[in-house]
Design a protein around this nucleic acid. Structure first.
Lengths: 194, 194
DNA sequence: AAATATAAGATACGGCCGTATCTAATTTAA
DNA sequence: TTAAATTAGATACGGCCGTATCTTATATTT
C-alpha cells in the first residue's frame, strides 16, 4: 500500500478542521473542547489552526456558522403585536435550545474577555440578527394601530434580545411563563401597546 | 539579625494575601492578574491560596469585598420617579466607574463559566443589591401618584440592573444620554408612568 | 521541467492553571 | 513538656494556551 503522504490544503483542510471542531463541540461541549483536541481529531496540528483562527471562540463560531443551522427567522405576521412577539420568542427559544446552553455561556464568556469578538459573535447571535426584522414587525403593528407609530431607538429594538439573553444566562431555560412576563410586563408597555 | 522563620497563619496570612490580591488587581487588572502572581506578591505559594479559594474569581471577589468599597446606596427621594431613577443610575455609574470595566468583564466572564459563582458575585454586584430598595422607591412613586400601585415582579424590579449591566458590558461606558434613554424609553413606560 | 513561493506538519517553548505530595513550623491537646 | 494535629511552604506534575522555529510537501511561476 502506498504510504499516505498527501497533504490537505486550503478549503479541503479547512473543512476537515471545521468538521472536527463541530464534532468536538457536540461531544465535549464548549468548555471541554480544546484547540489541540480539534487539531488531533482533524489529524493535523495546532499550528495549522492558529494560522486560521486566533482562538477557540473564533474557531467554534466558524464551525457554528457552517454546521449550526443558524436561525433563519420567518418574520411572523400573526395578526397582533403580542402574538407576533410570542412567535418570535418561540423561534429564538428553539434556536437557543439547540445551542446547549453551555456553549452559549462559553461563547459569551469569551466574548466578554475579548470584546472585539462581539461583532463576530453577533452574526451567529440572536441579539443583533433580531433587530433587522423586529423593526418591520413594529411598523406593521403601528399600521394596524396596535401601537403608536414612531422612531424606535436601537436600545428599544434590542430589548427583546437583551431580555432573552439575560434569561438564558441566568436561568438555564426559557419557559413560557418567562416569555409571557417579558412580553406583557416589559415589551408591550415599552412599545406603547394599550 | 535573626533569620526570619516566622510563618504567618490563619487570618494574618489571609489578610496578607487579600492585600496582595487587591494590589495585583489594581496594577494588572483582572485578566492579567494571576494566582501565582498574587501568591508571590504575598510571599507565599499557590498551594496556600488554593486551600482558601477555588479560583481567581473567588479570590478577587474576596479582595473586592474587603477593599473595594462596595456601594452603599442611599435610596434617593428626589420628588419624582424619574429623578429618583436618575439619582439611582448616577450612584450605580459611580460604582461601576471605580470597577475598571475590565475587572467587571473579567468577573462576569468567569461567572458565566461557572454559574454557581453567580450568587457570590451578586453580593458585590449591582444587579441584586439594587432590588432591595428599588421596590420602596416604586412604592413611593405609587403613593405619590406617579405610577399605578401594583405588585412588581422580580423581572421588572431587576430591569434597571439588566439594562445597566448590558450597557456597561457592550459599551465601555455609561453616558447620560444612555441613562436618559433607558429611563424614558424603557423604565418609565414599564412602571406605567404617564 | 526547474526554480520559487506557499503553507502543512512536527516539535519545542514559556506561561498559567489546578492538583498532589512531601517537609517542617506552629498550635493544640494530653 | 511532650505528643499529636494543623497547616504553611516547597516542589513537581499533567493539561492547555498561544508562539516560534524548522522541515518538507505541494502549488505556482518562469
Amino acid at each position: 500500500m502506498p504510504e499516505n503522504k498527501k497533504r490537505r490544503r486550503g478549503a479541503d483542510l479547512e473543512n476537515a478542521i471545521l468538521t472536527a471542531a463541530w464534532e468536538q463541540l457536540q461531544e465535549k461541549g464548549y468548555q471541554n473542547a480544546t484547540i489541540e483536541g480539534v487539531a488531533a481529531a482533524a489529524a493535523t496540528t495546532k499550528t495549522v489552526l492558529y494560522r486560521r483562527w486566533p482562538d477557540k471562540a473564533h474557531l467554534m463560531i466558524a464551525a457554528l456558522i457552517k454546521f449550526g443551522e443558524l436561525p433563519d427567522y420567518q418574520v411572523p405576521d400573526t395578526g397582533s403585536l403580542r402574538s407576533d412577539l410570542f412567535a418570535l420568542f418561540g423561534q429564538m427559544a428553539a434556536f437557543l435550545d439547540r445551542l446547549n446552553g453551555e456553549t452559549l455561556r462559553g461563547l459569551l464568556a469569551d466574548r466578554l474577555r475579548n470584546l472585539e469578538l462581539g461583532e463576530l459573535l453577533s452574526r451567529a447571535n440572536t441579539t443583533d440578527t433580531l433587530k433587522t426584522f423586529l423593526r418591520p414587525l413594529l411598523v406593521r403593528a403601528a399600521d394596524r394601530g396596535d401601537i403608536p407609530q414612531r422612531e424606535w431607538s436601537d436600545r428599544v429594538i434590542n430589548l427583546p434580545g437583551i431580555l432573552l439573553l439575560n434569561e438564558v444566562i441566568g436561568q438555564q431555560t426559557l419557559t413560557v411563563a418567562a416569555q409571557t412576563e417579558m412580553i406583557d410586563e416589559i415589551l408591550l408597555p415599552v412599545y406603547g401597546a394599550k
